Simulated assay, not measured.
Amino acid sequence: MTDAEALITRLFDAYNRRDFPAFAASLNDDVDWPDQMYGERGVGVAALRAYWVAQDQAIQVELTPIDFGLEADGRVGVEVNQVVRGLRGSLWSDIRLRQYYTLRDGRVSRMDVVRLEEPSLAP
């Protein structure tokens, strides 16, 4: 496992534990992150914290990294399985994504995401 893969794996672990301080420790202060709920972007750890709090009040998300790869532009690409549930545990979607991480000084400075497939919605 490369240093970049280890960093991003720790990021996923902290995310799934809902441990924001550990999650934020892997980010640059001016991190640029997508707001997938509203199709916007947040810049900075404080903006990401606000996004995290809003998301936790609406849904439960679990991310599982499947495959890592280094992109031609230097970003780290990660194929991810994303499971989204309502607050009572009902399945909303189970999809594959490709997340792209830009690293600077050993931390994440930007994340971009692309959906690899259409969501499979629960009946």
Rank of each mutant, 00 (worst) to 15 (best):
R115V: 05
P34T: 13
D3E: 12
T102Q: 12
V45H: 01
V61K: 07
Y101T: 06
G44W: 01
G89T: 09
R18M: 05
N81H: 13
A25G: 07
F68Y: 15
V61P: 03
R107M: 06
R110K: 14
R85F: 05
W52R: 06
D3I: 06
S120F: 07
E62V: 11
A4E: 12
D35W: 09
Y38Q: 15
E71F: 01
R110I: 01
N81S: 08
V83E: 04
D32K: 02
D19A: 04
L97F: 04
A122Y: 13
A122M: 10
T64D: 06
G106D: 04
L87H: 04
D67Y: 03
E40W: 02
T64L: 13
Q55G: 07
Y15W: 12
E62D: 07
V45T: 11
R115S: 10
P65D: 07
V114H: 10
D29G: 08
E79A: 07
R10A: 15
Y15M: 05
A54H: 06
D73A: 10
Y15A: 14
E40N: 13
L63H: 11
Q55F: 00
S90I: 00
Q60G: 04
R10P: 07
D67V: 06
I95M: 12
P119G: 05
D112E: 15
R41E: 05
L11E: 07
V113S: 15
V31Y: 01
G86V: 00
V61W: 00
Q57P: 01
E118G: 14
A122W: 13
A46K: 09
L116P: 09
F68S: 14
V83M: 08
D73K: 09
V31R: 02
R41F: 09
V53N: 02
A25H: 09
P21G: 04
L7A: 08
G69N: 10
D32Y: 04
I8W: 02
D73P: 11
E5R: 14
D112M: 11
E79T: 15
V43I: 11
R110V: 03
S93V: 07
L70F: 08
G89N: 13
G39A: 07
G86K: 12
A4V: 08
V114C: 03
Q55H: 01
V31F: 01
Q82H: 02
E118K: 15
T2Q: 12
A58S: 10
N28Y: 01
G44M: 02
